[in-house]
């Protein structure tokens, strides 16, 4: 048994809506496994089925070798869970949140206390253990929630978008902690819509879209699957109005995408595109301020497989301005 998680045709319907569509995958013991997909892809639904909150419509799943439907108690003993919302008891103090979690796992008192102390120190919240968590910042609540998931000394931790919407400091602490726990042998199952996070953190990534898994592999191999896809990034000091259309007319261009004040020109032949860019800037009297050639990123793989271009903070802002 080398698999921490195994699913067979795992499926969830919400009435007519097919949220998770017969997915099959394995997570190996000791790895950081990423579930990468856009909003509404079915990531949370999958985690909720794997952790026994929601019953699958069809299919089976095992966690640490235990069938989540037939041996739910053994399976649940093995897991720590950080859901997409920080579900902590706002009426209780940081300390009591951890201790109560320990009670749910029936840890003896001494162990509860030592664990709670150790985890609060690890997450930099020990000084504030007596305060009700109600007044904590979002990032602090997230840290408490992760600490709660570690109370029961599980062998796998499920984290549903653990860093989404947090301040930079919390994001760094959380990523560092996850790495450390993984080095100590804990299997990590993490969902994210953040491509950079997936390629930084994960040993293997499953790309999920509309309830289906589009690909599973290491971030590097996923990038290599579309090796042909290279691109040239250019920016002009002042961008001509119809630049986008002009660039699309270049030979050997597959696609042009505007990214903020830059253009990304996808091509199989970067040198031909570089030449065209140079000629274009000369004949139009444009100052080139950036020229880069880029290999495929995990984002490119993602776009290639799902047809969805993930919204970056920048494009969100420009959408609002429209």
């Amino acid at each position: 048994m080398d698999n921490a998680v195994e699913t067979k045709n795992l499926t969830k319907y919400y009435d007519k809506l097919l949220a998770v569509d017969h997915i099959n995958f394995e997570t190996k013991k000791g790895e950081v496994f990423g579930f990468l997909g856009p909003n509404g892809a079915g990531k949370t639904t999958t985690i909720r089925m794997l952790t026994g909150i929601s019953k699958p419509t069809e299919g089976t799943a095992t966690v640490m070798g235990y069938d989540i439907q037939r041996q739910p108690i053994q399976a649940k003993e093995q897991m720590g869970i950080v859901p997409d919302v920080s579900n902590i008891y706002s009426e209780l103090s940081a300390w009591d949140n951890l201790v109560f979690t320990g009670k749910l796992y029936d840890l003896p008192k001494e162990l509860r206390d030592t664990k709670a102390e150790e985890l609060l120190k690890m997450f930099g919240l020990y000084e504030r253990r007596r305060e009700k968590v109600q007044g904590f910042s979002r990032g602090m609540k997230r840290r408490i929630c992760i600490a709660m998931a570690l109370m029961n000394r599980s062998s796998i931790v499920f984290l549903d978008e653990p860093t989404s919407g947090l301040d930079v400091q919390s994001v760094l602490i959380i990523r560092e902690t996850i790495r450390k726990l993984n080095q100590e042998g804990l299997t990590i199952f993490i969902t994210t819509h953040n491509l950079e996070e997936a390629s930084q953190m994960c040993d293997r990534v499953a790309i999920i879209n509309r309830g289906k898994i589009a690909a599973i592999d290491t971030p590097e191999k996923l990038k290599r699957t579309i090796q042909g896809l290279q691109s040239v990034e250019v920016a002009f000091a002042s961008t001509p109005v119809n630049a986008l259309n002009d660039l699309k007319e270049f030979p050997d261009i597959r696609e042009v995408v505007k990214e903020g004040d830059k253009f990304r020109l996808f091509t199989d032949d970067p040198s031909s595109v570089l030449a065209s860019v140079w000629n274009y800037s000369q004949s139009n009297n444009l100052n080139l301020i950036t020229v880069n050639t880029l290999g495929p990123s995990l984002e490119d793989v993602f776009v290639n497989l799902t047809g969805i271009r993930p919204t970056t903070e920048e494009s969100k802002r420009s959408d609002k301005n429209k």
Binding site: T51, G52, I53, P72, I73, Q74, K76, E77, M79, I81, P83, V85, N87, I88, Y89, S90, T101, L104, Y105, D106
Partner: peptide, 14 residues
């Protein structure tokens, strides 16, 4: 509402 009910569903008890 605050999703803490899920904690009971994931606790290793019936």
């Amino acid at each position: 509402a605050n999703q803490t009910f899920d904690r009971f569903l994931t606790a290793p008890v019936t």
